[in-house]
Design a binder for these strands. Structure first.
Length: 472
DNA sequence: TTAGGGTTAG
């Protein structure tokens, strides 16, 4: 208890909940004021206050400030460690989660179910299948209860690491399933190209009185329809969602529908749908339609769509997404319009730095564009040269500073894994056409299965073909 | 009395 000058007092128990409120509201300024107050009243030594500060700073996107508080803590319990790990997830640094987990283990603190969920989430994002499997084993060895949180995290982890069968096994073994749990499994089927299985699972869900589909459920279902060419089914579920469940379509549902129609070659109908949307279309929806235009070689429609994207994004590449200009420049190149191609190319802004990761021997190796810091870099270069020779002159390898990270990752995969193990790569951006073509050739010439998870879906390359059927 | 978790369009 702290006595104030006016005789009132502040209990130390007040600070943590107030900081929690700041976390929820992402209110940095008030949070910083509480931090200052806690110093003033000598309460910064309290582990609850410290942990709440770490959570507050990370919720406000201030990982450095969270780390500052964490580093100064004389004692840390499992809640503190897990809060720090979650901070790394919020700041999109999943590899740091693994670092803190190892540090936690060194300090003799055992993980609990919250820690397990954070770890599985990190593994899902990193594509660290073996490490996640080890955590699954740990859950079993420790005879930890498979709570609905751990179960859902496991399902999502297995799906995001390419093992849908393992995800389904976990799903079936769970006695209690929340709507999130069903959604994770549905979405897993959808992005892996198992549309029919997703729809069958949805039917099961509808028959289960303990759970009711929500808006996210329909995003997963419609996504499954679009990735698998189930046009009529997609239309049906889009209507069912509104009629039977009273869910108004969000921009994400429309996004799935536009994608669905676009993939089926129905670009005019897709365009009509965007025009008539009950919510404002964003650049993603238009971008999806633009991809369809590219696939259909519909330049006139692509130009109309680009103008709409420019209305949203602006056309001056001020740090915004300029991927539509990449598509336009390629489309103009295809028809030999050099002038317009040059104009589109000039508007292409700076892309985020690409990286790809691959897990071998229980370790995650991450390769970033323009970095040659890996200890086996020399051998990777040799392998890249070998690939280049084997592929032949048709394929032009870029110069080092433009060497896409998935090429380096696949070279490392060829070096460090053996047939018949698939080479599994996780990439932060969308795979480019050039690399997509290369992966097909490598899968054929090296007789290896290559699985690349890019920021939108899974690509499974085998015998010269990709599971996305060249539409992505 | 006070602190930490799982699903979502391209």
């Amino acid at each position: 208890m702290v006595i104030l000058h006016n005789g009132e007092y502040i209990s130390k128990f007040v600070f943590a909940p107030v900081l929690k409120a700041c976390s929820k509201a992402s209110a940095l300024k008030p949070g910083e004021q509480i931090h200052a107050q806690s110093i003033k009243f000598g309460l910064l030594s309290d582990i609850f206050v410290q942990t709440s500060l770490v959570a507050m700073y990370s919720s406000c996107g201030q990982l450095e400030l969270a780390l500052n508080v964490f580093d100064k803590m004389p004692q840390r319990n499992v809640v503190t460690w897990t809060t720090m790990m979650d901070s790394c997830l919020k700041s999109e640094q999943p590899e740091l989660v693994l670092f803190f987990f190892r540090e936690m283990q060194k300090s003799g603190v055992s993980p609990d179910d919250f820690t397990i969920v954070s770890l599985l989430t990190a593994c899902a994002r990193l594509g660290a299948l073996n490490l996640g499997r080890w955590i699954h084993g740990y859950i079993n060895r420790m005879e930890m209860e498979l709570t609905v949180f751990i179960g859902t995290a496991l399902i999502d982890f297995y799906c995001k690491c390419g093992s849908v069968d393992d995800a389904l096994e976990v799903f079936k073994s769970m006695e209690k399933k929340s709507v999130r749990c069903w959604n994770a499994m549905l979405h897993g089927f959808s992005v892996h190209g198992h549309g029919e299985k997703a729809l069958s699972l949805f039917s099961e869900m509808e028959m289960d009185s303990r759970v009711r589909p929500n808006d996210v459920t329909f995003v997963a279902v419609l996504c499954g329809c679009s990735h698998n060419g189930l046009v009529e089914e997609g239309r049906l579920y889009f209507s069912l969602m509104q009629r039977k469940y009273g869910i108004q379509p969000s921009v994400k549902h429309y996004g799935c529908m536009v994608d669905l129609l676009g993939r089926a070659g129905l670009v005019d109908e897709a365009f009509e749908m965007v025009i008539k949307m009950k919510v404002a279309p964003n650049a993603v929806v238009w971008g999806s339609l633009l991809s369809a235009c590219r696939a259909q070689n519909n330049l006139a429609m692509a130009e109309r769509v680009t103008r709409r994207i420019e209305e949203i994004e602006g056309d001056d590449s001020l740090g915004g997404d300029t991927s539509h200009y990449v598509i336009m420049s390629n489309m103009y190149a295809r028809v030999g319009n050099k002038d317009r191609m040059a104009k589109a190319r000039a508007k292409i802004g700076k892309k985020p730095k690409g990286w790809s990761s691959i897990e071998t021997g229980g370790e995650v190796h991450r390769f970033s564009v323009g970095e040659a810091s890996h200890p086996k870099w020399g051998k990777i270069e040799q392998m890249l040269d070998e690939v280049k020779t084997k592929i032949g002159q048709d394929f032009e390898m870029e110069d080092f500073h433009n060497l896409h990270s998935e090429k380096v990752a696949v070279a490392y995969g060829l070096l460090s894994t053996t047939w018949p193990a698939p080479i599994k790569i996780v990439k932060n951006l969308r795979i480019c056409e050039d690399c997509h073509q290369l992966m097909k050739l490598i899968s054929l010439l090296y007789d290896r299965e290559i699985v690349i998870r890019d920021c939108t879906r899974f690509h499974r390359f085998m015998e010269g073909y990709c599971s996305c059927k060249d539409y992505w």
